[in-house]
Design a protein around this nucleic acid. Structure first.
Lengths: 182, 182
DNA sequence: CTGTTACCGTAACGCCTGTTATGGAAATAC
DNA sequence: GTATTTCCATAACAGGCGTTACGGTAACAG
């Protein structure tokens, strides 16, 4: 006897979570603010999530799904890495949200393991792409370098788009890759 | 008619702020938690700071002073950059605190300008060191690359010390520098 | 039509927050 | 000695928080 699309509602709440988090950060992320951003009340939110933690966990999982889907749609080392950079407004917002979840994971034992696993899988993915392109390289070392570089660029660009416009981000990445794979 | 050392008290509170922030993050950073970590009560804290914002601003400024002092004690590009990595427990804690302030700056218009200024000054500092070593390089580009790289390594190492032990962090940095300045 | 169930707005609850007020002990000033 | 000021613990306060309970509306079932 389902009347509304449950998943649609949960996705709508997730989007509201990102919206609030992007605008006000973790500190401003309250149930009431999320509900307002979703155009409803806390009653609706609590109807679909047992509590704030579950809501946040779902929003985080959905964010990762989106990121994964975007990267999976790409081919080749340069394109895959570039997809992880905040090259447009949407991805800049996503980067800001991602940073919020990142520091949350630093202090939340429930989130930390998944965060670490994801980072490691991402490094391994890049390492395998490097190994394909040039087996002579230390793929693990180069992958950690590249992931660090792109994460750093994303972080700096999120805070200072003026000095890290899209063209500059791309330039940094391409320049490094050209030295790595001449 | 000063009885106690005011600066000593403020510094003690600052240290308590870092301690709580490292352990519990921004979410767990309450006046009461800070007071307890400092071994006193909120009455003492409010006696030396007009409010939470001022306390945090002071703690943040002190953190930057410490970082600056450490870097200023070093010479040469490699050593300066290495000093910014979380190579020991103390700097790993500091990196976690720094990340908290970083995301706070993303959503706080009062903190953002200073954050951006500091990042830019840091990039410029690295750029000038690069220009000295090899004027043929695009110092600005290489500096942004290096700063992104070290920031990324610091972030990843803070979350996953297992995959980014001190030796690995150094290896990543040295390896990149060796390609940059053969 | 009647009963049941999904949906969710409204509102109350207790807790914890930053802030402010109060009061008193201790040190200095005179 | 008294007066004054610094220092800070204690506690009260209003506001906002996540959570929970309640109630009504609308959709389906029989």
């Amino acid at each position: 006897m389902r009347i509304v699309d449950t998943e649609e509602r949960r996705r709508r709440v997730s989007q509201a979570v990102w919206e609030v988090m992007d605008r006000a950060g973790f500190a401003g992320l309250t149930m009431r603010a999320v509900a307002e951003a979703a155009g409803c009340t806390t009653g609706m939110v609590t109807h679909y999530f047992a509590g704030k933690r579950e809501m946040l966990a779902f929003a985080r999982a959905r964010m990762h799904e989106r990121m994964d889907a975007r990267v999976r749609a790409r081919d080749g080392l340069a394109d895959v890495l570039e997809e992880s950079l905040p090259l447009d407004a949407e991805r800049r917002a996503e980067t800001r949200v991602w940073l919020n979840f990142l520091v949350a994971a630093l202090h939340d034992p429930d989130l930390a393991p998944d965060h670490v696993d994801r980072n490691r899988a991402w490094q391994d993915r890049i390492a395998s792409l490097i190994a394909e392109l040039n087996p002579a390289l230390d793929a693990s070392l180069e992958a950690q370098t590249l992931v660090s570089l792109t994460d750093g660029v994303a972080t700096l660009a999120a805070a200072d788009p003026g000095r890290f416009p899209p063209a500059r981000q791309r330039e940094i990445l391409r320049h490094h890759l050209s030295r790595l794979l001449p």
